[in-house]
């Protein structure tokens, strides 16, 4: 499941605590809603479930590539392109090359984790429809929101806001579909 862009419009409900949000999410799932997203100032433990992240695989591959590349650069520099014989020591000096190989592995893996995250989370993203909502600033402070896509097969403009109020929402906001 992807992060929602609310292109078809949405109904968003505000709650005062993580517990109330968790209960609301469960209730909405039982009612049959599927296209949902939550917004919270802290990660919530009982929220929506998402597809397993592929980031660990990307990081692992980047680490292996970084390690191999680091070793190859050293081999190319000191054993192939510019070999210097110092006291008859081997040109391809495996123990000496291990240190930069290790560092290259960690560096590439860390860069992949960092940039991979921002790519997957589609950040930086200066504009998102939720930023239009008055008081949504508190979603990074002390308020918890759940949004239901207007394109969800269960959504209806007459029924959904009422159902959200029924879950003890402080208020419900309707986002129009994006032109």
């Amino acid at each position: 499941m992807r992060d929602r862009s609310w292109a078809h419009g949405a109904y968003l409900a505000e709650f005062a605590s993580a517990d109330e949000l968790s209960r609301a999410v469960q209730a909405l799932e039982t009612k049959g809603y599927r296209l949902m997203e939550t917004y919270s100032p802290v990660p919530i433990t009982r929220g929506l479930t998402y597809r397993r992240s592929r980031l660990p695989v990307i990081v692992f591959v980047a680490g292996v590539v970084g390690g191999v590349l680091s070793y190859l650069i050293q081999w190319y520099a000191d054993a192939y392109a510019y070999p210097i014989d110092i006291g008859g020591r081997p040109m391809n000096a495996v123990p000496a090359f291990i240190v930069p190989t290790f560092e290259g592995t960690v560096l590439c893996a860390a860069l992949a984790a960092f940039f991979g995250f921002f790519f997957i989370a589609r950040l930086p993203q200066p504009y998102h429809p939720v930023f239009e909502i008055d008081g949504f600033e508190r979603a990074t402070v002390d308020r918890y929101w759940v949004g239901v896509d207007a394109g969800d097969h269960r959504s209806s403009p007459d029924l959904t806001p009422g159902e959200l109020y029924g879950l003890d929402a402080l208020r419900v906001v309707t986002l129009e579909a994006q032109p």
Binding site: M1, R2, D3, R4, E37, T38, Y39, S40, P41, P43, I44, G47, L48, Y50, S53, L55, P56, V59, V106, A109, A110, A113, F114, G116, F117, F118, I120, A121, L123, P124, Q125, P126, Y127, H128, V130, F131, A139, T140
Partner: peptide, 24 residues
């Protein structure tokens, strides 16, 4: 960066954070 604390962002964020911790 346009962070809005969506459930999806938090979930991916925790994965990336723990991975970076493991690498550090």
């Amino acid at each position: 960066m346009g962070w809005r604390g969506s459930g999806f962002q938090w979930q991916r964020y925790r994965v990336a954070y723990v991975l970076l911790a493991g690498l550090a």
